[in-house]
Design a protein around this nucleic acid. Structure first.
Lengths: 345, 345
DNA sequence: CTGAAAGCGCTAACAT
DNA sequence: ATGTTAGCGCTTTCAG
């Protein structure tokens, strides 16, 4: 069996209490005994038993993250922010990929097991009502990322302003016939981006051509996928309709699919069709996409910070922060004729 | 405080032992008392305390994965296989991103804390010697993914055969002047792919032009990055040297960077330069890359299976499995003139 | 300043 | 079949 504090206590001729105190840097120990204990602990190659610690301390120093669609680049980048921030404070991260509502609930239940984790991070998924009171009753810290509930801390991106900026960029470039290639309206993000797009068009006195607005019917990834973008564009091209001169696309991955469809049909970007998309995932620059950047890494970082604060102070007021996406101009919109790849883009 | 088995025992007028038995589906309970206990447990919304269980059972049903470079698409896809397989058996996954040797060792130590996790998965990183005996002494299950050690279970991809197949594909297309754009030789993968490339060239009686072999000096991601590919190609072009007609590239991401450099200089692919790369990450098809496919999801799946078997049977013989990468022909090599994107590619 | 002892919530061996 | 009790390894009073 592994070495325990009893072994150390015996070898060092002290009580286990003292060993524990030394290990936890309690000030009430003589330098002498401290040294003695430390030496023995090192010699025995002692490693504390995390669960026993967690049980006694009622603290696990572990967080869980529930995310949909594990392979989505957006999440991966937010997760990186989470992971690095957590690592810096010695916390562990348990990852739960929830692809179905059933799984989501299972993971939520699991995360609520008292003691298992100190808090849970929920990504982009709507918190089922049943769990709302559950989390509150059990005082189980929960912070929402890219989703919202008035009773919990949250971090979001302002889709309304983002879509507005994107649309206005296209308008400022002289486009008047602008379409939108959207994800599935089941997603709140998609809904918000669409309505903001429409409002912005109206605000500038431009016509909204409903036939140029495509809401994906894909369910996988809620239509935030390359296939969704590809299929929508191919469908439009095949229909033979006259194309708009510009598109606002609800995500980079969809824009990438759209690009493939356009290329196959010898339609040039940005000459024939200008594109502004959303997210600025890492590969967006590979495709020279002009897009709305979301500070993904920072979102993860801040989510963790909020969580740690919540753990420290459970009764602090609820805090909800909104990030405003920024426009990153590359070549897909036609504004930047001399765009050349560089890592800082 | 949360509800414990003591609460249930009290309310149901039974002993905690009985409650425990019911909760663990022990057969030695009357249906009657079982029902009684279950009812009370439900009513109290009981959730077992995972750590207390782990402590008593000496089993945590949790695995840890130590991976370098969290944002690497290769790892993400392997991890997805890990995560889904684990979810199916009710295990949790703790993720550790190790960007430095120091972090690697810290995580290794943490993973070895008796009881913390039932086993650890190490990705693509060399296991420091100190830890070898440590893991063995403590009987802490360890399985290696994309890395190797004779004393532990492992899953790898055969880089030698992969590089050979890639090179021979280029040769079969009639190329004789073939270069290699490689990652940092600190990486074992890069080393193996390079030597196999050279051997294959020699095997076919072709000259190896050392000036067309580029080993990255990037340390980030060991040179398996877009920037590394871009920089190497730009450097070659600027040098004014006559270019080889084909390149074997050690990873898809590098090939993507290389593509950008070529495009900027109006060098066509595959007409002027043919490319075969390695990995077949998800976005490889977006770029029509001919590449060596590694079964990433399956690798994750099998890693978990090996781990579970090892946990069940610690003294089973060590098993090491090798995957042979398969050639996926798209258009970057010029072999498939009529290549059209479809999702099944 | 330090040792002893009482939990943390649960499992499992031991009685009954 | 069920209750009781002794740990699992650690933290934290409580005496001294």
């Amino acid at each position: 069996m592994a070495v325990t504090i009893y072994d150390i206590a015996r070898e060092a001729n002290v009580g286990i209490g003292t060993v524990s105190r030394v290990l936890n840097n309690s000030p009430k120990v003589t330098t002498e005994t401290r040294d003695k204990v430390v030496t023995v602990a090192k010699r025995l190659n002692y490693q504390p038993h995390a669960f026993a610690q967690a049980l006694a301390r009622k603290r696990s120093n572990t967080l869980s993250a529930i995310i949909p669609f594990f392979t989505n680049y957006f999440f991966i980048q937010v997760l990186q922010g989470v992971q690095e921030t957590l690592a810096a404070v010695g916390y562990d991260l348990i990852i739960h990929g929830a692809n179905t509502q059933e799984q989501l609930e299972e993971y939520l239940v699991r995360s609520m097991r008292k003691g298992r984790v100190d808090g849970t991070l929920l990504f982009s998924l709507e918190l089922p009502d049943v769990f709302v009171e559950n989390f509150i009753d059990k005082k189980n810290p929960l912070v929402l990322v890219d989703t919202f509930h008035p009773l919990f801390d949250s971090i979001r991106v302002d889709n309304v302003i983002g879509a507005k900026k994107a649309t206005e960029h296209l308008i400022s470039l002289g486009h008047t016939s602008i379409g939108m290639l959207n994800a599935n309206l089941k997603s709140v993000r998609a809904k918000e981006r669409l309505s903001s797009f429409k409002e912005t068009m109206q605000l500038h006195g431009l016509d909204i051509h409903e036939e140029f607005i495509f809401n994906s019917t894909f369910t996988k990834n809620d239509g935030f996928s390359r296939e969704a973008g590809y299929d929508a564009m191919i469908g439009l091209i095949r229909s033979g309709a006259k194309l708009p001169t510009a598109f606002f696309v609800s995500s980079d991955v969809q824009a990438i699919g759209m690009l493939a469809a356009l290329r196959e049909n010898q339609i040039r970007v940005p000459e024939d069709i200008a594109i502004v998309s959303f997210d600025d995932i890492e590969i967006a620059k590979f495709f020279d996409l002009t897009t709305m950047r979301q500070p993904m890494f920072e979102m993860g970082e801040i989510a963790v910070k909020k969580m740690l604060e919540r753990i420290e102070n459970p009764s602090a007021p609820i805090s909800s922060t909104n990030f405003t996406p920024t426009l990153v101009v590359r070549s897909s919109c036609g504004a930047n004729k001399n765009y050349i790849f560089s890592d800082s883009n």
